[in-house]
């Protein structure tokens, strides 16, 4: 029993890290809170769904397409929504970013409902029902695939941020945008790229969601809250700690399910979240 809690906790935890990593990147670099993050997760899921249903592209293989499409959407969102926020004094930007992305939820969720109806959608790939025995526990094949994808994406993100000049300029801007701009780094371009990557990562998480669970137009809030919890566990804007934070949330949730039953899965996370907010606002893993 304990082995099962740990196994599922780890799987779901790693998946949660994928859901949250984009939001963490955006907050870390721009200090904006994107409440519509979950809506982008849902849109990514829909793109995978349609690529699978219309063109027969396997959801795992559709991830590169999803990343590219969502990256472009991210660029547009930056231009239309985040870029005008610079009009405000620095102290007001964070609050206003929340209000504006909140308005964005209304727009995106209802646009999705309008385009693709409110039906719940999921992908049934040929391997969807298959399970693999791992340490005596039956694990769905898709979950393992999602974990592989998560490792790949977070690994590539890490390499990009630490090895390329653009990645390094994003990291530098996150730490001190004034110092970065003195080195000739175009801050606006850095923000633009970071926003694109953030939304692209949300989209990839959406593919995982539609594979492991299902999506519907108004389910974005659920994924946003999970990202938010992971973000606060990790400490706001800390990208590296997201992995550990995701694992922590996954394990604690599974423990909650074991003790209270499946209906209270999300409640456990949310209550823990508020406790952490109050007791350790700098995050669980911050030094």
């Amino acid at each position: 029993m304990i082995a099962q809690i740990i196994m599922y906790g780890v799987i779901i935890g790693i998946f949660y890290a994928l859901v949250a990593v984009g939001l963490s990147l955006l907050f870390g670099v721009m200090k904006y809170m994107n409440i519509a993050h979950g809506s982008f997760v849902v849109i990514g899921g829909y793109i995978s769904f349609w690529l699978f249903n219309l063109l027969g592209i396997d959801p795992f293989l559709s991830i590169p397409f999803v990343l590219v499409i969502m990256f472009v959407i991210g660029l547009i969102v930056y231009g239309l929504v985040f870029s005008p926020l610079k009009r405000f004094a620095e102290g007001q930007r964070l609050g206003n970013s929340m209000l504006i992305t909140f308005g964005l939820i209304l727009v995106l969720d209802n646009l999705v409902a309008f385009l693709w109806t409110s039906d719940v959608k999921t992908i049934t790939a040929p391997y969807s029902g298959q399970v693999i025995q791992l340490l005596g526990i039956r694990v769905p094949f898709t979950s393992l695939g999602v974990i592989g994808v998560t490792f790949a994406i977070i690994g590539i993100l890490h390499l990009f941020l630490s090895r390329t000049y653009i990645g390094q300029s994003i990291k530098a801007t996150a730490q001190d945008w004034e110092a970065a701009s003195l080195l000739g780094i175009n801050i606006n371009r850095t923000y633009l790229i970071a926003c694109g990557i953030s939304v692209a990562l949300a989209g990839a998480a959406g593919t995982a969601v539609v594979l492991m669970y299902s999506i519907s137009p108004y389910s974005g809030l659920e994924w946003m809250l999970i990202s938010m919890i992971v973000l606060v566990f990790a400490g706001l804007g800390k990208i590296r700690e997201v992995f550990l934070a995701g694992l922590a949330l996954g394990l604690l949730e599974q423990l909650g399910v074991f003790l209270l039953g499946g209906h209270y899965r999300a409640v456990v996370g949310l209550v823990l979240f508020v406790l952490i907010l109050i007791l350790r606002p700098q995050g669980l893993f911050a030094k």
Binding site: M98, V267, L270, L277, I278
Partner: peptide, 22 residues
């Protein structure tokens, strides 16, 4: 949640409302 400031207050209140809803 009143001890929380700014963005923490907002997401804290949202999380509690969702927990209550569920």
């Amino acid at each position: 949640t009143m001890r929380l400031r700014g963005v923490y207050f907002s997401i804290g209140t949202l999380a509690l409302a969702e927990a209550l809803r569920l």
